[in-house]
């Protein structure tokens, strides 16, 4: 780990702790896989803006910052946070888990709750439509009828397919891909017109991944039936969940979560709402 960034982080965390009144929480004691440390899993790789430069230990990026904030509130110093990378499959496999909590934009759903446990939501993501400029030039607009006629694609391991079916109901078959990188590749190959991702990811794709990407519009978050809320994943029945929930609810009520969100997930202004 980079020493300067550690120092910077320590200063930042100290400030945040002071703000929260330095909670000496004993809730988490004995409930982590490594005594005295908190093991946090993230994606492999982890993407902007959730984790910057695929390096969560820098504390940069929304999920990295949230994780450190939760850790602090549960009484773990920054250097007691251990990062690990997992796939979705590793997160849901039966047996002992390699992490205490796992943050990688997991949408909370009742079905998933059968196998794993979720924390209270730490982010509500408006689903947003990403297209390329030629599709806009061809007449695509942020209206339900226009979206129906587009050729859709999405990453398979996400709730995007369910959202596309529920919110848009496209006329042609939805193509599915391994991950967002493949989705954008198919967009470049003109095999699909549009994809649906959470708004922060949409902004990132349009700005950094696609040369001519456009965020065509976003859906109001109450339209999604709760499929747009991200929660941390725990092994089924993990008692640590209550401690994390306590921390998250404190972060919500004192405005810390909103502040982290403002810091890392800004720039969504001007994306039209799809009615």
């Amino acid at each position: 780990m980079n020493h300067t960034s550690t120092a910077a982080l320590a200063v930042m965390l100290a400030a945040l702790c002071a703000n929260a009144g330095l909670a000496q929480d004993v809730c988490a004691t004995g409930k982590t896989i490594t005594a005295g440390s908190l093991t946090v899993a993230t994606g492999n790789p982890a993407y902007f803006p959730w984790v910057i430069d695929n390096d969560p230990s820098s504390g940069k990026g929304f999920e990295a910052a949230v994780a450190y904030e939760i850790a602090t509130r549960m009484g773990f110093a920054a250097e007691k946070v251990i990062w690990t990378a997992t796939s979705f499959d590793q997160a849901i496999q039966p047996g002992a888990k390699e992490f205490d909590l796992n943050l990688q934009q997991y949408s909370i759903s009742a079905e998933r709750d059968q196998t794993v446990d979720f924390s209270a939501p730490y982010y509500t993501a408006a689903p947003a439509v990403v297209v390329r400029q030629p599709v806009v030039d061809a007449g695509a607009t942020a209206t339900a009828s226009s979206l129906k006629g587009l050729k859709w694609g999405a990453a398979a391991g996400t709730t995007a397919l369910a959202l596309i079916d529920a919110l848009i109901g496209p006329e042609s078959e939805v193509m599915l891909y391994d991950d967002t990188a493949d989705v954008t590749e198919a967009m470049k190959a003109n095999q699909i017109d549009a994809t649906l991702v959470d708004l922060p990811t949409a902004l990132y794709l349009a700005a950094a991944v696609l040369d001519d990407g456009v965020v065509l519009g976003q859906f109001p978050s109450d339209a999604t039936g709760g499929l747009d809320q991200f929660g941390a994943v725990f092994a089924d029945g993990n008692p640590l969940r209550d401690c994390v929930n306590e921390a998250i609810s404190a972060m919500v009520s004192d405005g810390t979560l909103a502040k982290i969100e403002t810091e890392w997930l800004e720039g969504a202004t001007g994306v039209p709402m799809i009615q």
Partner: peptide
């Protein structure tokens, strides 16, 4: 892109965990 059986199984896997 094509949603054949293994992909469909993968989708179900991630929806149902």
């Amino acid at each position: 892109g094509p949603v054949e059986i293994l992909r469909q199984a993968g989708v179900q896997k991630s929806l149902l965990a």
